[in-house]
Computed example of a mutant assay.
Amino acid sequence: MKILKNEIRELVSQKVLVSIFYIGIIFLDALGAILPKYLDRQITLFIPLPLICIIHLINANKINKWFLLSLVFNFVGLYHFNHPYKEYNAIGIILHAIAFLIYFLILLKYYQIANIKRVLKFSFLIVILAAVPTIIYSEGMNEMHLFYETLFYAFSVTIFIFSASLLYSNNKTKANRFLLFSTISILISSYLQGYNLFMEKTNLLEFLAIILFNLTHYFMCWYLIEKSRKKVHDV
């Protein structure tokens, strides 16, 4: 029995196998969002984040409790965010914003002294990336009474992207590449979700936004796994 459990553990912990399963689930979930008559999201919507939790628990040499907490906030946020045109959508946005604030706090421990010019350059770029869509979507944000909640979300995502980009720029390691992929995913996903919510609902954009949102957490998970492994090796 013990041998069987070890074999199952090894099988599940293989990155390729888990990746295929995870990508398959988020693909089905994204299809369910645009083809609700054929695919019911009541199951697929809530599988990806628990699966991310399992991937982290199995593969990380040291469990990051803050990361698991962020997954809880994102999970509950999805529950409230499942119907994007309902009044309680504001709760979902706030919960997701808190989750990305936790991501930012996680990254703080990995900061090193950075070049001031590089910090200013990234600051200017990130402000532009955040300000332009906010201005474009501001009318829709006001119409849906979600202006301040969306600003809070934009702020949280922005400081996460800023800190992650700075870390990657300072040290282009394998772990930091996962972090870079995570920021690219959430940046594009946020743009697409904003367009769907505040401009015009488009099936293709919603499909891509759901996939990219889930990939954000997948890449963040593997960033932390790689960091935990490196820390053990250094010791």
Rank of each mutant, 00 (worst) to 15 (best):
Met1Ser: 13
Glu10Tyr: 07
Gln14Phe: 09
Val18Met: 14
Ser19Cys: 05
Leu28Cys: 06
Leu31Val: 03
Leu35Asp: 07
Pro36Gly: 04
Pro36Gln: 13
Leu39Arg: 03
Gln42Leu: 09
Ile47Pro: 02
Pro48Glu: 01
Leu57Arg: 02
Ile58Asp: 12
Asn59Thr: 03
Asn59Lys: 04
Asn61Asp: 12
Lys62Trp: 03
Ile63His: 10
Leu68Gln: 09
Ser70Phe: 00
His80Arg: 04
Tyr85Thr: 11
Ile93Ser: 03
Ile93Lys: 00
Ile94Ser: 03
Ala97Ile: 03
Ile98Pro: 09
Phe104Cys: 08
Ile106Tyr: 04
Leu107Ser: 06
Leu108Trp: 10
Tyr111Pro: 00
Lys121Leu: 14
Leu125Ile: 15
Ile126Arg: 08
Thr134Arg: 05
Tyr137Pro: 06
Met141Glu: 15
Met144Trp: 11
His145Glu: 15
Thr150Tyr: 14
Ile159Thr: 12
Ile161Leu: 11
Ser169Glu: 15
Lys172Leu: 08
Lys174Met: 11
Ala175Asn: 03
Phe181His: 04
Ser185Gly: 03
Ile186Trp: 00
Ser189Asp: 14
Asn203Tyr: 12
Leu204Phe: 13
Leu204Met: 13
Ile211Asn: 00
Leu215Thr: 00
Tyr218Met: 06
Lys227Ala: 03
Val232Cys: 03
Val232Gly: 01
His233Lys: 13
